[in-house]
Simulated assay, not measured.
Amino acid sequence: MRVAAIDCGTNSIRLLIADVDAGSAESGSGRLVDVERRLEIVRLGQGVDRTGRFAAEALARTFDACRRYATLIDSSGAEQVRFVATSATRDAANREEFMTGVRDLLGVEPEVISGEEEARLSFAGATRELAGRGFPTPHLVVDIGGGSTEFVLGGTGDLPTVAGPQAAISVDLGCVRLTERCLPSDPPADAEIAAARAEVDRQLDKAGLTVPFEEARTLVGLAGTVTTVAAMALDLSSYDPDRLHHARIPATAVHAACARLLAMDHDERRRLPYMHPGRVDVIGGGSLILDGIAARVAPFLDHAEVVVSEHDILDGIAWSCEGPEELIPCAF
């Protein structure tokens, strides 16, 4: 079955059109065959942490992207469409204006999902293909977004998706939110970086009360912050998803990349060959989050590294289009 999945977050809106071969839910088999993947940085969450509302220009950027996605979906012949909105939409007082616009443009009901559902879908997208590939379980999947970060622990033996997530939490810690709160200067001052690290530590303390980091054996990182930091650690000459997918980045390399990014100004970051233009002003904050997570979790892992995944919540949304029986069971 051909499906279309849309993930609308705080910083970006992404589309996956894919053919689903469900395989066996019991064995975790099956595959997604990509037809189209698109990403646009729309910064829907611009100022939401401060004002509690979507800015008019942010809504306009998002609706423009939805129009382009609607054209692609219509021409693809997708049989099922699921539109998921996450952190910024949960927080915005005028979210009905956003939802009405999406309905009008795409003809689908947008779902404002909880942080726990976001975490579960991220786990599904990231772990379904890990079985039998030598990544020890349990897996700790971390999805660093613009407004929130999801932590999901799960997997036993060789079938992480069948075991499902065992614990999950979403915290208000994302690259846009942290930058707006703590990192106004370019490059950020030492005092700003210290304040940002303190906020990261505070949120990690909160997450650790629900998700036992000490049980993790593999740390899996998702989304644009992780792939950008990994591209820097690997010294890529351009953004290369094939090189990045399942790359193993030592925690020490994450720390070094974070330090480099925080020392750069806007123009230096913009010139990096793998840097998406929409991440230039928030990658420092995102790298601080990833560095904090890697430092906190590394002592417990079989290998002190971050395993990068190009597959994430978008893939989890696509799998869920197959029907409720294909959703990974939760045990939160």
Rank of each mutant, 00 (worst) to 15 (best):
G286Y: 00
L261G: 04
G23C: 06
T161K: 04
G132E: 11
P277N: 14
S24C: 13
D49C: 08
L140R: 04
L222D: 02
L272E: 07
A331H: 15
E36F: 09
D104K: 11
E117W: 00
F300R: 03
M99H: 08
V108K: 05
A195F: 07
E325D: 11
E117A: 12
V3L: 05
A247G: 07
T252P: 05
R177D: 01
P212H: 04
I169P: 02
T86Y: 01
H255S: 14
F213H: 05
I313S: 00
S76I: 05
A207S: 13
D267P: 01
F151G: 02
M1I: 05
R50W: 03
G146W: 09
G47D: 08
E326C: 10
F98N: 00
H255E: 15
A230S: 15
F98I: 04
T71K: 11
T71P: 03
R31G: 13
I313N: 01
S114D: 11
A126N: 09
A256F: 09
H303T: 11
F54S: 02
S114P: 04
A198T: 06
P241G: 13
F54K: 03
A4Q: 05
M1H: 10
S114T: 14
R31I: 04
D242I: 08
G134I: 14
L209D: 12
R133T: 15
L130M: 15
A263M: 07
D158Q: 14
I144V: 15
A294M: 06
Q46L: 14
G208Y: 08
I289W: 00
I293P: 00
A198K: 14
I313W: 01
H311I: 04
L39Y: 06
L44T: 02
P138F: 13
R37Y: 09
S114M: 10
T100E: 12
E118S: 06
V162P: 10
P188T: 10
A223M: 11
E26C: 03
R38W: 13
A251C: 14
V282D: 01
T252D: 15
V81Y: 00
T62Q: 08
D267H: 15
L178I: 07
G208T: 08
D312N: 11
M99F: 08
S75R: 11
A119E: 03
E117Q: 12
Y239N: 13
P187C: 12
A65I: 05
P299T: 04
I293V: 14
Q203P: 09
P188C: 05
I169M: 09
I169Q: 04
A124G: 13
G286W: 00
G174C: 08
M275V: 08
R202E: 13
